[in-house]
């Protein structure tokens, strides 16, 4: 139906010290260009939203990210989500003032879940995207990880997503650490499991290799699909993803 909300196709730009990088399983980082330039290019390719993930290790270089966000917001007039290193209401305030429309929070919410409610009370749920890096534990259940998938946070992933939604997260960015970088498809079982438990938008991430993979993720219950390197290196274009979604009967812009 033409009247329903379109599936969002979202390129994600991992940014370190002002440059876009993306590695396989978050290691072996490769430089894929200037973030403002890439964001502008994706804006022109009918991306529905842009996500910046600030992976800068040192806080001294965080100011670089505010500058990147600000310069992007001046020329790209689609929604801009920024995550990485967000721990407090003040961090969110700074990013919104720089020009972000939404803010992603991950480790900061694991360390102190109440920060979700604090941010939602101050700015509204719609600014807050709870990002969860999830892997399959040896016993088969899904667990939340930190440190780029290396460490278990000791939290069951499906419960965590539901709890975050209850506390006031506006969307869930669900990243499969097992699928990330493999290009063999999203973790559909994970998407279905989270979809069953939450009534807020679900953004699927990790594992995209072909246009059909994005369709599979939406069929499994994702409201939006996110990818990085397949877009950056031109293996799949946003237009191809949208054509595949449209052919499968999903509304796209």
């Amino acid at each position: 139906m033409a009247v329903s909300v379109a599936v969002r196709v979202i390129p994600c730009l991992d940014v370190d010290a002002g440059r876009v990088v993306k590695g396989v399983n978050f290691e072996n980082l490769r430089d894929a260009g200037d973030p403002v330039e890439l964001a502008r290019r994706y804006g022109g390719q009918s991306a529905d939203e842009i996500t910046f993930l600030d992976i800068t290790a040192s806080s001294a270089e965080r100011d670089t990210m505010y500058d990147v966000v600000s310069r992007t917001a001046e020329e790209v007039f689609i929604p801009l989500t920024v995550g990485g290193g967000v721990r407090s209401v003040d961090d969110v305030d700074r990013l919104l003032r720089a020009g972000a429309d939404k803010v992603g929070i991950n480790t900061g919410a694991i360390a102190r879940p109440d920060v979700i409610a604090e941010i939602a009370d101050r700015f509204g749920s719609q600014v807050l995207v709870l990002s969860a890096d999830v892997r399959r534990a040896t016993d088969g259940h899904f667990e939340v990880t930190t440190h780029g998938g290396k460490r278990s946070a000791g939290i069951e992933a499906i419960e965590w997503c539901a709890h975050a939604a209850h506390l006031g997260a506006g969307e869930i960015l669900l990243n499969s650490m097992d699928a990330d970088g493999t290009k063999s498809g999203f973790d559909l079982e994970l998407i279905r499991a989270v979809r069953r438990e939450i009534g807020i938008p679900l953004i699927a991430s990790g594992g995209a290799g072909t246009a059909q993979h994005f369709v599979d993720a939406v069929d499994a219950g994702a409201n939006a699909v996110l990818a990085a390197s397949v877009f950056h290196f031109g293996q799949v274009t946003i237009a191809e993803v949208k054509a595949a979604l449209r052919a499968a009967g999903h509304p796209v812009r």
């Binding site: 909300v5 409201n223 812009r253």
Partner: peptide, 8 residues
């Protein structure tokens, strides 16, 4: 699904 987020 609420909020309504996206292009309509």
């Amino acid at each position: 699904v609420v909020p309504h987020v996206g292009w309509t």
